[in-house]
Design a protein around this nucleic acid. Sequence first.
DNA 1: ATGGCAGTTCCTAACTGA
Length: 272
Amino acid sequence: MTLKIATWNVNSIRTRLSHVTTWLQENPVDVLCLQETKVIDQDFPRSSLEDLGYHLEIFGQKSYNGVAILSRTPLQSVSLGFAPIVGATLAEDFDDQKRVITGIYAGIRIVNLYVPNGSAMGSEKYEYKLRWFKVLYEYLKILQHSPVLPASPSILICGDFNIALEDIDIHDPTGREKQVMATDAERLALRSILDLGFQDAFRKFTLEGGHFSWWDYRAAAFRRNLGWRIDHHYLTPDLYEQAIACTIDKAPRSLEQPSDHTPVIVELEVKL
DNA sequence: ATGGCAGTTCCTAACTGA
């Protein structure tokens, strides 16, 4: 059985609703992870997506951030934010920003993340991003090893990471040492996560640069392919072995009034 | 060094994003 799981930062689900429904009709994935929904839960446009046959789990807030998971069958063991997993002390105030949602689909623990942007190197938001990663690290360690959570050694982390891990993930890495999304500290923070035992699904199939998932709205960046690859699928070894494709669908970025990100899809060949 | 574009709200200005 082939499972298709996609991630897409839609930059407002209400503004992008027609793009998402059209895309799902043409790309009936099993699971779609959304970021930057930018809407409180009571105003989330549920019915338009449920009418397409999807179950929804949402974790939103007003104006900013917000994550959601759409799935063909209901998720199990759903958890919103850091606190239910790591506890209130470690979570501090990090759940004030709705950036983390997880659930189990077909035995796979799916973790959908909207990583903080970081604004600029050295800024308060940049420090927040790095501290956020420390909490994420503890969160994932618990998901991997908790004796109380449902057994799920298979974990897929996806979402908008706001980090380009390698220079080939940036159209022009000149000066990247001081550029947010590419600084050494951010890359090290992401590496520490991967060192828990995750591999980049996209790089199983594509080794060269020039493949991006986000293009700035300004300066005709998309037309000139001046992009960054910052939306990722990271897999535990068993899932990495089962991955048969990982693709970036640039089509939605070409539409009128697009999100600045475009979907990334991973296909897994799993045993029933 | 800056802005460039887009979405949101305390909505025609200010913020956040990346």
